[in-house]
Design a protein around this nucleic acid. Structure first.
Length: 921
DNA sequence: CGAATACGGGG
DNA sequence: GTGTACGTATTCG
């Protein structure tokens, strides 16, 4: 049956299938598969045959051309002309049978060298080589060493001057059947999406396949035609799940899941639990088998439910590190046919049995080699860990499910002691299952909470980046490349591969902060500083020139860019497109607001934000080693250099007019004026300066006015904003450490408050008092507790040097049970020795040891001094209290309070500030 | 001081 | 998957 759908793309993959040829023999073939959701909220699998992988090779030698032409895996070769570094060059387009063959061709034929060694070349040739623009060095000698700036130019030189005859056999080997590969690292399905010019929403026509075979989606469609369609945002099915298990025995007790269908608001819940109690050490083989069989049943039930419910998103709390690993390990162990004849475990592709992907394939695990970070993938579904979303969006001080739930919706986990799950499972089985479901529910509510809203945000950025939603959940690279590669392809420009080279360059300008407490501070910033610089100076890999004469833009780091009229760069055009569509989105938002359509307004607000993310990421992309474009080492540094020039100009103009600039970073400046001491005056001044410095596509904007502003160092400040809205601003102080003790964060918060009330003297006193109380032990023990989790002892390189590991060892010696990964609370008792000594906190046992109050006081002083230093009170002074030495110390210091005196009625403040000094003396 | 290492979170 | 992206505080050297 023929049908047509509008589809929002969620994921893409490919499959190798057997295809019958007219000759009757089977041949491997590739089909692209797209997964998505239709406008009617139906899940769909789209099968797209007839697309083949291809790549380009620069000016291949005769040998390489012959090898490729006659290779059994090569479907076709054709000559194409593509632009590379400003010139049109000859390339060979090579179409191959399957994506996984491309890396194989690369390893067999990719040229690795850009230095050529020549034996006895004539002197005349050497002169010619030296004169070549792209030769960076010619070192004469027995063997002449010719270095070029990239492999393409090595190839060009060899061809142009017939250099093979001056190369020995070994040297020839490096170049003979090798070539420089282009576009051979573009993920196959992305290549498909770019070439078909698909966006995140497509319209597709094709034949509905009635027997769904392995697919779990509502619809399976064999595509015959693709078209454009308007953007829409279907309701997704979001599943959250949680597993309770035994650490000791490794088995699963229960799996609970909850599924929200955004389209209808309906929620479905499932609880799958074991009929057995905990395992024991002395179980008989028969008992063990029964329990294994029971767990097998649970896993199978889980798989069946997921396939039936067919969610688009799978979430849970810390599922990347725990629950998914649990499913993976247990299904490998229990569902694999590991009970074969000789009892040996059969090696199977891992995750294969957890068949919950939309194509019935299993769970795949990817571990980052350097970070150890684990990523899970299910075809057609998007795996999102609510924990990671929370970290990214909220940066809460503690990241536990209970803490975050309390913070977001004042709800909390059920009362189950998860560290004693075996015990809880014996005594309160029903409650554990409820607790498990509750956790799944909390994770779902967190992921969809307005302040987190991960699913919507991903759906949104997918729009301007024109990609399936799963693609944008990875990194920003892919989003930028999605836009760039399409433009570049259309204009017949070659797509080089990243060389992975890194280079250091200077970043944004950071003004040396004037520490102190200030009043009536005006904050301005350039909107979209980096994108604006790209546009202003036509910065692009297509506009770089070595010829200063034809350049219109000369960056402060001496890179030259062509005038916009001569060649309008691809990157500036891309960024302009983004800024324009952001303006449109903002206008739509305004319109929707005016119409009273708050949902629509909210949508356009998120969309404009997504576009902002994308346009800002453009600069970042050119600064990474993954950036594939030539001249990238001129692009990012030129952007930042021009930006530094721009903001410096503002700073120096303001200073030349007698205003005091207090802080500034990359695109922002904070300053204060003696003659503007109220909101209205500050607004007038701010707007005047905004107008003065906004020119062309650069827009300096009055962002905020602060009644009080405290700055202590670069990137560390807080303030009380009173315009355009009254809010608190805190930067760089976020006390986000879970291993800090309560007293520290509580005191810090209190000190912020006092400072912003305009009472720095009180803040210093409060700090001193708290430190003194701590030193003298007049402090609640519970506010000193530090809690850290302790892993397997032998997982540490140097376990004895770590306090928390030693505490866990002591717990074990004292006869308490210790489970690796367990959170261990303790109080430091002696920090003057190495390793630091601490005593564990044990529930129900009174803490009798004496805390190392000096240690705690010092840590407090260290944290608080970052603020009090601005008032002339450093860490040492804080520790010394009001002693005579304090006084001496202060006498040598320059004036401490830097608040600008307020005019007229505010005079009393000045007196108070003097009083602060008096107090110290 | 910059580089290396560990944590967080889950049961 | 035609790859290679945690962010941050503390300790180490």
């Amino acid at each position: 049956m023929q049908a047509s759908f509008d589809v929002r793309l969620l994921d893409s993959t490919y499959e190798v299938v057997q295809k019958e040829t007219p000759q009757g023999n089977d041949r491997e073939d590739v089909i692209v598969k797209l997964y998505g959701k239709t406008r009617e909220n139906k899940s769909v699998t789209i099968l797209c045959p007839d697309f083949k992988p291809y790549f380009h090779v620069f000016e291949p030698t005769g040998e390489l051309r012959k090898t490729l032409e006659s290779h059994e895996d090569v479907l076709s070769v054709s000559d194409v002309k593509l632009e590379y570094k400003g010139s049109v060059e000859e390339f060979l387009e090579v179409k191959v049978r399957a994506p996984w063959l491309v890396p194989r061709f690369r390893s067999d034929h990719e040229l690795q060298h850009k230095t050529i060694y020549l034996e006895n070349p004539p002197a005349e040739l050497l002169e010619q080589l030296r004169a070549e623009q792209d030769v960076s060095d010619v070192i004469p000698g027995h063997e002449v060493k010719v270095s070029t700036i990239d492999r393409v130019y090595s190839q060009k030189l060899i061809h142009k001057y017939g250099l093979f005859k001056y190369m020995d056999a070994k040297e020839q080997e490096k170049f003979r059947s090798k070539g420089t590969f282009f576009a051979a690292d573009i993920v196959f399905t992305n290549r498909f999406i770019y070439d078909m010019d698909m966006e995140t929403c497509i319209s597709v026509k094709g034949e509905v396949i009635e027997t769904k075979s392995q697919y779990t989606t509502d619809i399976v469609l064999k595509a015959s035609e693709f078209g454009k369609c308007d953007i829409f945002t279907p309701g997704l099915k979001i599943m959250s799940f949680d597993i309770e298990s035994s650490i000791k025995y490794g088995n699963i007790y229960c799996i609970c899941l909850t599924v929200l269908d955004e389209a209808t608001g309906a929620i479905e819940e499932r609880m799958i639990s074991s009929v057995f109690g905990p395992r024991t050490e002395d179980m008989s083989p028969g008992e063990k088998d029964d329990r294994d069989e029971d767990e097998r049943r649970m896993l199978r039930e889980f798989i069946e439910e997921v396939r039936k419910l067919d969610p688009d998103i799978i979430t849970g709390y810390n599922i990347n590190n725990f629950d998914l690993a649990m499913l993976y390990d247990r299904s490998n162990l229990l569902l694999g046919n590991n009970n074969n004849n000789n009892g040996e475990k059969q090696k199977k592709p891992a995750g294969e049995f957890m068949t919950i992907g939309r194509d019935s394939l299993g769970l795949t695990r990817r571990e980052n080699r350097t970070t150890g970070f684990v990523n899970w993938d299910l075809k057609g579904r998007i795996v999102l860990d609510a924990w990671l979303s929370v970290k990214k969006e909220l940066r809460p001080k503690r990241e536990g499910l209970g803490y975050v739930s309390a913070m977001l919706f004042n709800d909390t986990k059920d009362n189950i002691n998860s560290t004693k799950m075996d015990e809880e499972w014996v005594n309160r089985r029903d409650e554990v299952v409820k607790y498990c479901l509750k956790d799944a529910d909390l994770a779902l509510r967190i992921l969809t909470h307005p302040r987190i809203n991960t699913v919507n945000k991903l759906m949104d950025v997918a729009i301007p980046s024109k990609l399936p939603v799963k693609e944008v959940s990875g990194g920003q690279n892919r989003m930028i490349e999605s836009l760039l590669i399409r433009m570049v392809d259309r204009e017949k420009i070659a797509v080089p591969m990243s060389t992975g080279e890194t280079y250091d360059y200077e970043g944004g300008f950071v003004y040396e902060t004037k520490p102190g407490l200030w009043e009536w501070v005006i904050g301005l910033d350039f909107s979209s500083m980096y994108p604006s610089q790209i546009i202003k100076h036509n910065i692009c890999f297509t506009t770089v020139t070595k010829n200063k004469d034809e350049a219109e833009h000369v960056s402060p780091m001496n890179a030259f860019f062509l005038p916009h009229e001569k060649r309008h760069g691809i990157v500036p055009r891309m960024v302009e497109g983004l800024l324009t569509s952001r303006k449109q989105a903002k206008a739509m938002m305004k319109q929707a607001k005016a119409d009273g359509d708050s949902d629509k307004a909210e949508y356009y607000n998120r969309l404009q934000n997504a576009i902002k993310v994308l346009s800002n990421a453009t600069y970042g992309y050119f600064g990474t080693k993954f950036c594939r474009w030539p001249f990238n080492k001129y692009i990012a540094p030129s952007i930042t250099a021009w930006a530094r020039e721009e903001i410096r100009m503002v700073v120096s103009t303001l200073e030349s007019r007698g205003y005091t600039v207090i802080a500034g970073d990359t695109d922002s400046v904070f300053f204060t004026s003696k003659d503007h001491r109220n909101v209205e005056d500050c607004k007038l001044l701010g707007f005047r300066i905004q107008q003065e410095f906004s020119e062309g596509n650069m827009h300096l904007e009055l962002e905020k006015i602060m009644e009080r502003f405290f700055a202590h160092a670069k990137k560390r400040y807080f303030g009380k904003i009173i315009w355009p809205e009254e809010t608190l601003l805190i930067r760089g102080y976020e006390p986000r450490r879970t291993d800090s003790f309560d007293l520290q964060s509580e005191t810090m918060t209190k000190v912020f408050q006092i400072v912003l009330e305009g009472k720095p003297d009180d803040a210093v006193n409060y700090s001193k008092d708290t430190i003194e109380n701590t030193l003298k032990g007049r402090i609640d023990l519970s506010s000193l507790v530090i809690s850290k989790s302790v892993n397997d002892f032998d997982s540490y390189d140097n376990p004895d040097s770590l306090v928390h590991v030693n505490v866990a060892k002591r717990l074990q010696e004292m006869g308490y049970e210790f489970t690796p990964g367990m959170k261990t609370p303790f109080i430091i008792t002696n920090a003057s020795v190495q390793p630091i000594k601490a005593e564990p906190i044990i529930e129900g046992v009174p803490f009798t040891a004496r805390p190392d109050y000096k240690y705690y006081a010092e840590r407090l002083a260290m944290a608080l001094s970052r603020i009090t230093e601005a008032f002339g009170c450093d860490e040492r002074t804080l520790m010394q209290g009001n002693s005579q030495r304090t006084l001496e110390f202060f006498c040598e210091e320059k004036p401490v309070i830097k608040a600008e005196p307020a005019a007229g009625k505010e005079q009393s403040k000045k007196i108070k500030q003097t009083a602060t000094l008096d107090m110290f003396m």
